[in-house]
Design a protein around this nucleic acid. Sequence first.
DNA 1: CAAATTTGTTACTGGTCGGTAACAAACGTA
DNA 2: TACGTTTGTTACCGACCAGTAACAAATTTG
Lengths: 205, 205
Amino acid sequence: MTSKKRARVPRGQAQEKILQAADELFYQEGIHAVSVDAIVERAGINKMSVYRQFSSKTDLVIAYLKKKQAAFWQEWEESMARHPDRPREQLVQFFADLADRASSQEFRGCCFLNVAVEFPDPAHPVRELVCAHQKRIFDAFLERTVALGADNPRELAYTLILLMKGTHADSQTYGTDNAAIQLLPSIVEKLLAAAVGADAGADSK
Amino acid sequence: MTSKKRARVPRGQAQEKILQAADELFYQEGIHAVSVDAIVERAGINKMSVYRQFSSKTDLVIAYLKKKQAAFWQEWEESMARHPDRPREQLVQFFADLADRASSQEFRGCCFLNVAVEFPDPAHPVRELVCAHQKRIFDAFLERTVALGADNPRELAYTLILLMKGTHADSQTYGTDNAAIQLLPSIVEKLLAAAVGADAGADSK
DNA sequence: CAAATTTGTTACTGGTCGGTAACAAACGTA
DNA sequence: TACGTTTGTTACCGACCAGTAACAAATTTG
């Protein structure tokens, strides 16, 4: 029935379609579990078109991660933009948005962590990209906790990152029972409130 | 040199050796990345001995997870046993021990989360085992936060779980730079201090 | 020692995967 | 129209993988 002969994808649209298919499949199924052929089928293009644009599957994975990286920073900026120059509201907003996303049925956690799990070799290029991304995230959090005026901005930033990653992980290991995730904004709110202007000399034993 | 002919493993020791090799390889490299042949080689036994004791690779994965499950509860009990009937010290101790383990070079995060990442199908038996385990962990935390007398034991238990999972995840996405992990006990200490006897009516807006 | 059980060895199957070669068809450009 | 470029098609390669069959050797049990 499906006469899929010679229905050619014009110009440079192949790359876009490949990346879209790779995004969906890699994120939902994992890297090792998704073959290049599966991506080819989903993208509705040809296998050779993949290897004409990407030198290898690893290359495609890296392109996928870069796309996800851009998506993350867009989400970050959107959360920030809703409360300009209000670090506290910005951070709470980010976690509220995260809780919403994590409640979705398609949510499969943090794609960077997932990739790191599948590529244990620290020297692997994919792994290096993930590490660099994590460092940038820490810096972004730190910049906000400094702006917030936290007593210990580094510790607070690290705590927030743990909560974020914990949420990513939790959404995968639990099934449909994700009711607890909605506690997240409240948790962050209390944490931020306690982190500024409180016991400033708690560091010294 | 290695004349490895006819060096037979006696009695029921095969199972033990297989599980030991599977533990090391599955945890370090991941499930999909480790072939049955690799386990066979590492265990120094024969491939047929694997399939005589485990009906399939999935069966072996489940046995691996059950072993890890037992190991987790042993670590949990050990942390608890150091401060009997002192929930606060017990929880801090657990996170201090976690921080130590997570600082190790061989640490590769939470094996349950790692497996969940590699098996996205929620109906997969491996996945169900992971979910059941997570629920039991939550109950264990909850029991301790109740004993602690926390104002909101469920929220506190959930926060602690996020911190634990976040630590698991963080240790994988960062490289050797895991200095921040040592902040964990201090973070938990402050969290516990703030969670008991504080603003009890904070829930109502 | 003899029989039964357990393990090791070798060889194999059917399948999947990443990647490539060669050629045909469609498109853009002139 | 004619040419170069890009895509699709088919077929294939070598490697790897999960799992099995048949037989030989070692160990236990009697």
